[in-house]
Computed example of a mutant assay.
Amino acid sequence: MRLTVLVDNATLTDRYFLAEPGLSIYLEDGGTRVLFDAGYSGILVKNARKMGIDLLRVEEIVISHGHLDHTWGLDALVRLHTEAILEGRERIEPTFIAHPDAFLTRSCDGVGEIGCHLSVEELFRHGKVLLTAAPLWLTENLVFLGEIERRFEFERAPSCGYIYTPDGIRDDTVADDTALACKTAEGLVVITGCSHSGICSIVEQAREICDEDRVADVIGGFHLLDAPPEQVQGILDYFAEVQPAVLHPCHCTDLAAKVALSKIADVREAGVGLHLEYG
């Protein structure tokens, strides 16, 4: 399995790509190409083009959760495919994969929409849409983890505003937050979006679904921004026990959290332009 970071809050040093508060990761497993999240503004298209990655050949577009910093870049992907059709260029019709809540309207702190502004109906015009709360195997080794069971009290966070469902408005606990996991020769590689559901809960679900205790790497957002000490300590205790070979925290993970994690694990730099390969 190979992965490349297309969007993150920062770029690697001396790599001349664009960055923004958002996340998008391109993956290849065997002959299958997967895009995990789409960032905020559409810079993933420019960064991918500069890296020689053809987003028109991506079969599956997986959304970690419905927040704007992970979904608003879908606009750019829709335009990319629309132009390809009009210009007669080859493309693969993508399948959009997400939790059923991922495309619902959300609001927070007076902002009218912090969720995806493309509806499921609109996405259906541009490809297939598969909504599931259950785990879904994308390849023999790569799995969409589905709705995460929240297992650790120290990771429970307050709601993120409101979500507008067919049954009415309710507090948004970001139940749609999920991740990917890939079985490799070195152990599991877990790819996260923001980890609103809890980074430890995500890793535990990945280990359970994949029937693999070894963790080779966790890359993505850990949702640790000014996190309370008891949450940080709980996460440190968990990873000290799991003993991941490497961690690549990025996106919504602040410096203090990275420093704390570095005391119990091999924390490495992540950013736009990072390319990783696993056996």
Rank of each mutant, 00 (worst) to 15 (best):
G110K: 10
A38K: 05
V7K: 10
R15T: 11
I85H: 13
L224H: 05
H117K: 12
A216R: 10
D109W: 13
G198K: 06
V58L: 08
G161S: 07
S197I: 07
I163V: 15
R125P: 00
L224Q: 12
P100N: 00
D213I: 10
R106T: 08
A84D: 03
F152S: 03
L35F: 13
S201G: 11
R207Y: 05
S262M: 04
V259I: 15
I148G: 06
F124I: 04
I202W: 03
A10F: 02
D266M: 11
A84G: 01
Y16H: 15
I63Q: 01
A10V: 15
A10I: 14
I25N: 08
C194V: 09
A102Y: 03
R170N: 00
S41C: 02
P249E: 10
L236Q: 09
K46I: 03
S195K: 01
A179M: 12
E122L: 10
L225C: 08
T32R: 15
V129P: 01
C252E: 12
H65P: 01
D177K: 03
G221Q: 07
A48I: 03
I209A: 02
I114E: 07
E269A: 14
E153Y: 05
H248Q: 04
V120L: 06
D14C: 06
R15N: 07
A84V: 00
I235P: 01
R79S: 11
A270P: 01
Y238I: 12
D226I: 00
G161M: 08
G193Y: 04
H223C: 11
P249C: 10
E83F: 10
T253K: 12
E147L: 06
R151K: 15
A260Y: 01
C182A: 14
I235V: 14
R2Q: 15
Q205T: 13
V174M: 14
D176G: 15
G73P: 06
A245I: 13
S24L: 09
L138H: 04
H70Y: 12
E28I: 13
F36E: 05
G220Q: 04
R91V: 02
L247P: 03
I63C: 03
A157G: 05
D14S: 13
T165Q: 10
H275M: 13
D29K: 07
L188F: 02
E149W: 00
H67E: 15
W72P: 09
V111F: 12
I43W: 04
N47H: 03
E153R: 09
R49I: 03
P228S: 05
L68W: 10
G39N: 05
A157E: 14
E93C: 01
R79D: 14
V259K: 15
H99W: 02
T139E: 07
A157W: 08
G279N: 14
L138I: 15
I209G: 03
L104K: 04
E204P: 00
D177E: 09
F222A: 06
T95P: 05
K50T: 09
P94F: 07
S119V: 07
A216T: 04
I25S: 05
L261T: 01
P228F: 08
